[in-house]
Design a protein around this nucleic acid. Structure first.
Length: 493
RNA sequence: GCCCCCAUCGUCUAGCGGCCCAGGACGGAGCCCUCUCAAGGCUCAAACAGGGGUUCGAGUCCCCUUGGGGGCACCA
């Protein structure tokens, strides 16, 4: 592939929460930029004042930072091609819109929304495609300019050729030819003075020197319009890459509000902010989204650096992809296991703290090897490690009763275990296992019965990290105290 | 309704005319390991949507059908 430095951008509109679709739209350009030693730009497309969400930009920036997708230019860090918020570029769009009018490729339109609505209704009633009827197309340019300047409400529309066709190329799909007659006189500049996407994005991409436009496939149908606009200005078109959409887990249709609600119920989310809180790691999330729409053969556990080294626009896939949360779990767990113990400890600590535990770093570091291969999310550290930091545990008395044993028999067993462990100067894997194994041997009990009672007594739960290693970390005194407590509970049954 | 795009195991995908009675990963099933739960190892089930062409030869190229997705705003 061509490795000359690209200039690419992530250009979200700040209208809501950052989700995996956004993240992937940022990831691929980022990878391409890093792969080629190019430039990755963040641009905020905030021209829709109705849908504007003042918190969105910050969430977007935080999301990028969390994922590790650092941009080289953007509204928060500046750069030579600013401003990077479209509302701060009004004059630029104005100039360009009128330039197009001058060149005869656009025209001011004074039609009211009411008239347009009526026309649309009539067209639909006549089973025609709803489209602009060309009412203001033939207006005298000077007259139109005068009316516009006198304060009359107007928009500027692209003057789409009536005949001919245009061929626009998507890198993943090849050339796509469209009849101009099928295209509309789209609005470029709105009556509020702000541009539509069709003008703003084309102007900005040109002015910012964008070489590859990587965006969602919802833009594929307007690519012909975009190429028309670009050519009307006399510019060279960038390479277009349209990413496939994410489908709901069933693969039937794209994600809806209901699906995101359902995901949350199942303990998942498509929003980055939620995913972080649920204990997903940037590495896991990145790996997951990277592989939805990107064909990598064989080794598919990839770090960001691996992705950069292997990324290639041509291996992106054009077909829609159903999201699969089980795979997210897999990647998350895999990347957790790949982490350095100190790194993992640092990431787990906030979760434990938030759960109310006072965490000692040294102790946590000792726990890491015991729990790392058991974690799917960082949040799982709470059930797996919480009991290490608790003063007392409160097991369910019923769970202290071993399989096929009565409460009294179970009490007898744990009493014997207590006697054995009490006799030890310290409780470690090496010191505790042999005498307990010997006891099991002599008693004819099953290891699961003895260790099961002990596990519940010491950890307060039926599922835990390995018993002996856990007891070693908890310490002799606490272990014995917890066993005595369990013995009392059993005796009371 | 009109326009556009897409089509390999349940899911994400490899495959760019012979290397494919189709490979990997997730998930599923089984076995091993084992103090619970995991992790790990091994094994198994599982797909070229259908129909026409082109070709000595098609999952790979073309056409149609079907299915899926997207778009048709003074939203992006």
């Amino acid at each position: 592939m061509d490795l000359s430095p690209v200039r690419v951008r992530f250009a979200p509109s700040p209208t809501g929460r950052m989700h995996i679709g956004n993240a992937r739209s940022a990831l691929y350009p980022f990878l391409l930029a890093r792969r080629t030693g190019g430039t990755f730009i963040l641009r905020i497309e905030d021209t829709d004042q109705k849908r504007y969400d003042p918190n969105a930009e910050q969430e977007l920036i935080e999301g990028l930072r969390w994922l590790g997708l650092a941009h080289d230019e953007g509204p928060d860090i500046g750069g030579p091609n600013g401003p990077y918020r479209q509302t701060e570029r009004r004059e630029i769009y104005h100039e360009h819109a009128w330039k197009l009018v001058e060149l005869g490729h656009a025209f001011p339109c004074f039609c009211t929304p009411e008239r347009l609505g009526q026309v649309r209704q009539e067209q639909m009633a006549a089973k025609q495609n709803p489209r602009y009827d060309g009412h203001c197309r033939a207006l005298d340019p000077d007259e139109a300019r005068r009316r516009a300047q006198s304060g009359e409400k107007f928009v500027i529309r692209f003057k789409m050729p009536k005949e001919g066709s245009i061929t626009a190329t998507d890198l993943l799909r090849g050339p796509i030819t469209t009849e101009n007659a099928a295209l509309d006189d789209s609005v470029l500049l709105k009556s509020d003075g702000l541009p539509t996407y069709h003008l703003a994005a084309m102007v900005d991409d040109h002015l910012m020197g964008i070489t590859h436009v990587i965006r969602g496939s919802e833009w594929l149908p307007s690519m012909p319009l975009h190429v028309h606009v670009i050519r009307a200005f006399g510019w060279d078109a960038p390479q277009f890459v349209h990413l496939s959409v994410f489908l709901k887990p069933s693969g039937k249709g794209k994600l809806s509000k209901r699906d995101t609600a359902q995901a949350l119920k199942d303990g998942y989310s498509i929003f980055l902010g939620d995913m972080k809180e649920l204990g997903y790691t940037p590495e896991g999330v990145l790996n997951w989204i990277a592989l939805m729409g990107w064909g990598v053969s064989e080794d598919d556990v990839l770090s960001l650096d691996d992705m950069i080294a292997r990324f290639n626009v041509n291996s992106l896939t054009p077909s829609p992809a159903a999201i699969n949360f089980a795979k997210l779990d897999h990647f998350n767990g895999t990347h957790i296991r790949l982490m350095q113990p100190t790194d993992l400890a640092a990431r787990i600590k906030p979760f434990l703290s938030a759960a109310g535990y006072l965490v000692q770093d040294e102790k946590l570091l000792k726990i890491i090897p015991l729990i790392r291969e058991r974690l799917v999310t960082l949040d799982d550290s709470i059930p797996f490690a919480g009991f290490f930091f608790r003063d007392v545990v409160s097991p369910d008395p019923q769970e202290l009763v071993a399989k096929d044993l009565t409460p009294a028999q179970s009490a007898q067993v744990i009493g014997k275990v207590l006697a054995i462990l009490s006799g030890l100067a310290d409780i470690s894997h090496a010191s505790a296992e042999p005498p307990l194994r010997q006891f099991i041997e002599e008693s004819g009990l099953h290891p699961n019965q003895v260790f099961g009672i002990l596990r519940v007594a010491v950890t307060g739960q039926k599922v835990s990290p390995p018993l002996f290693e856990s007891m070693e970390i908890i310490g002799r005194e606490t272990v014995l105290a917890r066993i005595r407590c369990a013995l009392e509970m059993l005796s009371a049954l």
